[in-house]
Design a protein around this nucleic acid. Sequence first.
DNA 1: TATTGACTGAAAAATTATTTCCAATCATGC
DNA 2: GCATGATTGGAAATAATTTTTCAGTCAATA
Lengths: 281, 281
Amino acid sequence: MLIKDRIKDAAGILTPSERKLAAAILSDYPYAGLVSIQDLAKHAEVSPPSISRFVTKIGLAGYQEFQRDLIAELKEGQRSPVDLHMENRPIEGGFLSDFIQRTTRQMAVSSAAITEDQFARICTLLATPKSEVHVIGGRVSDSIAFLLSFHLRQMRQGVYHLPANNEAWPEYLLRMKQGDLLFVVDFRRYQPNLLGLCQTAHDKGAKIILMTDKWLSPIAKYAAEVLPVPIESGTLWDTYAPALAVIEALVTKIAEDNFDQTRARIKAWDALRLTDQDVPS
Amino acid sequence: MLIKDRIKDAAGILTPSERKLAAAILSDYPYAGLVSIQDLAKHAEVSPPSISRFVTKIGLAGYQEFQRDLIAELKEGQRSPVDLHMENRPIEGGFLSDFIQRTTRQMAVSSAAITEDQFARICTLLATPKSEVHVIGGRVSDSIAFLLSFHLRQMRQGVYHLPANNEAWPEYLLRMKQGDLLFVVDFRRYQPNLLGLCQTAHDKGAKIILMTDKWLSPIAKYAAEVLPVPIESGTLWDTYAPALAVIEALVTKIAEDNFDQTRARIKAWDALRLTDQDVPS
DNA sequence: TATTGACTGAAAAATTATTTCCAATCATGC
DNA sequence: GCATGATTGGAAATAATTTTTCAGTCAATA
């Protein structure tokens, strides 16, 4: 039996620190287990005795047998890609693996719905230095939008994240000029105030890039580019993981295309951040 | 340098038994080297001292370093049966689909590293009405953490999202009581101030649930539960999509388990929200 | 054939890793 | 609240592994 499975089987009877240990081992399986008991102890923040007890608990004679087995698995595993492949489809179907699988499927959908062409076009837009970029999302999706503006800010200047409170919007709208960009994330339960914002921005000549779901937010009307992403998870709630993946893809592509600039900027950034570091440990 | 190459480079100055040894190691590389010096000695038909001398000769400090290096090589090399596979054909599907596929792969890893058991346990903890839940994340990951607190707030009372500014933390810490929960998301570039927060919370008797990457944030020391999620995207930047998926899975599970309560709460919530809606369209 | 020097492995020593024991702590049930 | 039992990590004991020492062997050479 695989060590991994032994751990999962024993999951029910593990003590708190043993669970920490299990997490540490599984998080970089099997390599995390291929160090001395002391190093593993330090890494997992538990004591060596706890590890010793743990390996006994999962039915092994001792730490050494544990390691020998891990190495044997590694050796085996590399030989039979078939087995590995089987592992990728856990039919056992716990809630988590089930959910993840669904999300995974949705992610595939998103890459199908967005053409590489459009993707490249949007990257180019967002990377254009002379266009300032304004970013905002809906009540929930703003946190996704935040990741875009955060990373974008590391790569270029002129990136602004609009606050949720529309009282402050005029300040940003006044600054917007012809050719600037407004990146909006708006998923169902579309917010009327975002629509108003986009209308105004559009009137001012800003290009709007909209990330939305398949029902298409009314903002689509003003958008120069619409990035459709699937948000149905097959459950009662929506999933934003595909949306996040697309945003991360954008950010990564832009960063790679402008690598030197980005690196320089991050370096300068970090240098400044150090000066007001909170609590040096 | 790879051990293999070190051996080949040294081939000229090897003694007869060292050559036997080299052959034994290379014949089942790198697994043959991953046993005790005595087993390897027996297998290669030489004495342990010869092995010791050998590893020194090829420029390593000792047998242990030799093994550590072999494992590191293995990890590096196998790090990406997937990644490498993709790197070979990055153009095929285009940047986006390539990126999405990688992310997808990572998501599968996360469901392998988190046991269903642990998942269920954490859901139970977060759903316990009498424990208040405090949520916070790192500079970037806080936006992921936000989605947890946001949705959790829809399902139960006593959910607080700590502000990024640590000036305000004491207020929350004062409120924390024995048995309360602190859910922390902390990915690499771990923030010292979060560690301090967790230490204090832990001292106050709060249970800490930590979502982190495989390098394990130092907060693991105080954590009752550690949720490891993969964040490597195979590019220069990390991806939080798997983390988000896990959080969404948590939220969904909790909502489904407490469906009536959640529905009633959302209904009441929406009723209140309508009264101060910003701009009716 | 004797001498030299390199090579080797047995045994001892040193080091390192692992396990056991135990006291302190923590949580739990009464 | 108090007692009980489980859990935990430090320290000691144990075990294992690795390295060093050293004497014997062998081959090459004079």
